[in-house]
Computed example of a mutant assay.
Amino acid sequence: MGMPLHGAPLRSVLRLRARFARITALAAVAAVSLGTWASAQAENGIMRDNFETPDSCPIGRVENTVVAWRYDGVGRKTIDVTVADNLWGRIDSNASPVAFPWLQSFAVLWSMPRNGYIAAAFDFPEAVDLTTWGKFTHGETLPGPATDMSISAWCGDFNPPEPGCSFRGTTTGQAMSVYKRTGALINVACVVKPGETYYVNTRLTNPDVVHAQCTASTCKTTIQHNHTP
Rank of each mutant, 00 (worst) to 15 (best):
T132W: 10
F122D: 05
E196N: 07
I186G: 12
V191G: 10
F158M: 00
I186C: 13
Q104G: 12
P161S: 09
R168P: 01
I186S: 14
F106I: 03
A175F: 15
M112Q: 07
R168N: 02
R181C: 10
W133M: 05
V128E: 09
Q174P: 15
I91S: 13
V192Y: 12
P143E: 14
K193T: 07
N86W: 06
W133Y: 15
I151C: 02
V128H: 02
C165I: 03
L185F: 09
D129V: 06
E162D: 14
H138M: 12
S177Y: 07
S177C: 07
V83G: 02
G116Q: 02
Y199A: 01
Q104R: 11
Y117W: 01
T141D: 14
F136W: 15
V98L: 03
T182N: 12
L142E: 11
P207K: 08
A184S: 14
D92A: 01
A153F: 01
N201R: 08
G134H: 14
G169W: 08
C190H: 13
G116W: 01
L130A: 13
T82C: 02
L87S: 03
T147K: 11
G89C: 03
T141V: 13
A184D: 15
T197G: 08
A153C: 02
L103D: 00
K193H: 07
F100Q: 01
T78P: 00
T197R: 14
G144D: 11
G139R: 13
N86F: 06
A189N: 14
T170P: 09
K180T: 06
F167H: 09
Y198K: 03
D85W: 07
W110K: 06
T132D: 08
T78K: 14
F100T: 00
G173N: 10
A127C: 06
V81N: 04
R181W: 13
S105D: 09
A127Y: 13
T172C: 08
W133R: 07
S96Y: 00
P161H: 05
T137Y: 15
F106K: 12
T147D: 01
W88L: 03
P145N: 05
T172R: 05
P145D: 14
M149N: 10
T197P: 05
V210G: 07
T171N: 05
K135S: 13
H211N: 14
G144Q: 12
E140N: 11
W88T: 01
T131M: 02
T147P: 04
N201S: 10
G156E: 00
T132V: 02
A127R: 08
